[in-house]
Design a protein around this nucleic acid. Structure first.
Lengths: 347, 347
DNA sequence: GTTTAGCACTCTAGCATTCAGAGTGCCAGA
DNA sequence: TCTGGCACTCTGAATGCTAGAGTGCTAAAC
């Protein structure tokens, strides 16, 4: 189906999409003919456009007004016609400054997301995956309030989960330290999911065979591991408000669905999970994403690395009519910057 | 200026506003005359309405269409005409179930905010004030990564702040425990702000007179106290998406400003701070709030208590045309439920 | 003196009509 | 294979019209 286009048709499609992206108006043959670079009469252009329409790359909103790219058209544009506009180094430098790292990776993700939304004037998203996380350290603190213990879990990425739990009796500080030590020795470096399952299994066997300290630790740890599973914190979205003023997304009902997707996060997580496994930048255009809420949106995501391993993905979400040439390089740079911060940091 | 209205004018105003709230259409004299309870001809009603308009309580969008309440009209309605519709106990019970408390007060606030937004179909907000917080406990954990220490601060409300800091050399676990003990002994129960200032003063004096352990603790604690000042986490907003589908807030530009206010939080914090000092429910109508972004919105807030002391405020934000009778009692009940959870919990 | 009926007036919302402009498709000629 | 020309279509803005809803005012009725 995807027969090769003639070079002329390609050039025309490229010019049309670029024009549409900057104007937002359907593009007609006259307009395109006046455009420098193509010395063709409107009539010729009309013929070519008719071919492009047959191929499903462009369409006209109504019988007789200019053409508009379809999702397929954008796809071809992004895949093979686009000339990405690299950022100048001053810009990159400025962006790097904005990425503040204070030790809390969550803050870093938030600042990356917010940076993206400011620079692109779209919504920025950062996915902080949990599946790869492993256990680093647990600690139990006795609280003054009766029979309360604060459980603190530190994961390999440096994220910290804490939770206050009620316990059945008072534990001395020494007991708590011992329990933590046992647990740390037992599970250090193991993936969270594995530990979670293991804890669940322990709960069922309920063996009296276990040492007391280990048993205590297991009981208390269970709560915070249950928390760490919740993926609520894994996705950071910012700059949603930018989407409000984009005329392309005028349909209030669709906009509401989109915002719902931001708060629910479920669908987005699935989608972004896919982009994790890609080598480089990925662009989901319109309904390609498979989620209704994103029908009129495109998502541009780039995986970022820490010490050579992909640990998450970062990008933006905006209308299908977005300035891909700029957005792609901005997302690319952000992913690199983020990777840089994470990697130097770990050294 | 606020001369007493005749009972008839009051009844009329009340009927008009109730009608407008449920319909969203300007209300004319005929409509009002047909309404049960008032046996008056349209002409009479027109006379009264003219008076109400002179008083600035209602206005007509254009020369000849029905009347619409002004902010002043809503104010009088809310202050003296409104018959609050109490929730039935089943409803209250159901809401109580939704307020899950797992030991983390932040989760509780989020669930309260989300509960409000679901029940009212508006945006829910919860203010968690910081000024009243006092110090409960600090702890330092050594991390495997070179020269990193995790600082954990627990405040009186049970909130936990953590931060990873770099230190100049390796500290042994024993050193860290000692430092924490010193610090805890020194500052237990004192207000955060006081400690913050004290730490700042110490930094300047830089006295060699201080014990080494105390000095270490002070240096490390400084970072997390700086964090705890940031008020970013103090305001929880949820259900913003609900506002999108409200026809009254059709102006996209205003909506964008409103969403910006949600993410900036600064203005909202100021406003809500005011509502903290009120005894009971407060309603800010339209431009009364003094913030442009809230021009076409009303804010209904109720302070909530923990053990008899007001510790925060909870409520909703929506269009000026909202069902005050229901919203007010929903907010009221939520504040009580929240207070209940916080108080039983502390016992 | 309050209330009501009647009347002239005003403004909106919807509808049909018109008209210019932009764009298309197609055909015939270069 | 490209281009010029022509008939056709569709949109969007402007216009005029009408019905409906609502008002303000005045004079009569209670």
């Amino acid at each position: 189906m995807q027969m090769a286009l003639s070079p002329r048709a390609e050039a025309l499609l490229k010019a049309l999409i670029e024009r549409y992206i900057s104007d937002g108006q359907p593009v007609g043959s006259r307009t395109l003919s006046k455009q420098a670079g193509l010395e063709l009469s409107p009539a010729t252009i009309r013929n070519v456009m008719a071919d492009l329409e047959d191929l499903g790359l462009i369409s006209s909103p109504h019988t007789s007004s200019g053409r508009v790219p379809t999702a397929l058209g954008y796809r071809m544009f992004v895949d093979s016609l686009l000339t990405v506009r690299p950022l100048d180094s001053a810009e990159i430098y400025r962006m790097g400054d904005e990425l503040a790292y204070d030790g809390d990776p969550m803050h870093l993700m938030e600042s990356a997301s917010s940076l993206l939304s400011q620079v692109t004037r779209l919504a920025g998203i950062v996915l902080v995956p949990r599946q790869e996380e492993s256990f680093r350290q647990i600690e139990f603190l006795s609280l003054p309030a009766a029979n309360r213990v604060l459980v603190i879990l530190v994961t390999s990425s440096g994220r910290v989960h804490n939770r206050v739990i009620r316990v059945d009796r008072h534990y001395s500080a020494a007991e708590l330290v011992e329990a933590a030590n046992c647990f740390n020795d037992l599970y250090s470096g193991r993936p969270l999911s594995e530990i979670r399952n293991s804890l669940l299994a322990d709960l069922q066997s309920d063996g009296d065979a276990m040492q007391r300290a280990v048993k205590n630790a297991t009981d208390m740890a269970r709560h915070v591991f249950a928390d760490s599973e919740s993926s609520a914190l894994d996705l950071v979205v910012s700059g949603e408000a930018n989407l409000l003023q984009i005329p392309d997304l005028g349909d209030v009902e669709k906009l509401r669905k989109l915002f719902d997707a931001f708060t629910t996060k479920r669908d987005l997580l699935h989608l972004l999970d896919r982009s994790m496994h890609a080598e480089s930048i990925q662009v989901f255009i319109g309904s390609e994403s498979g989620y209704q809420a994103l029908d009129e949106c495109s998502v541009v995501m780039a995986p970022y690395q820490a010490d050579g391993r992909v640990v998450g993905t970062v990008g933006v979400i905006g209308p299908t009519r977005m300035a891909y040439d700029q957005v792609i390089s901005i997302v690319d740079v952000t992913a690199r910057l983020l990777g840089g911060v994470l990697s130097t940091e770990a050294r």
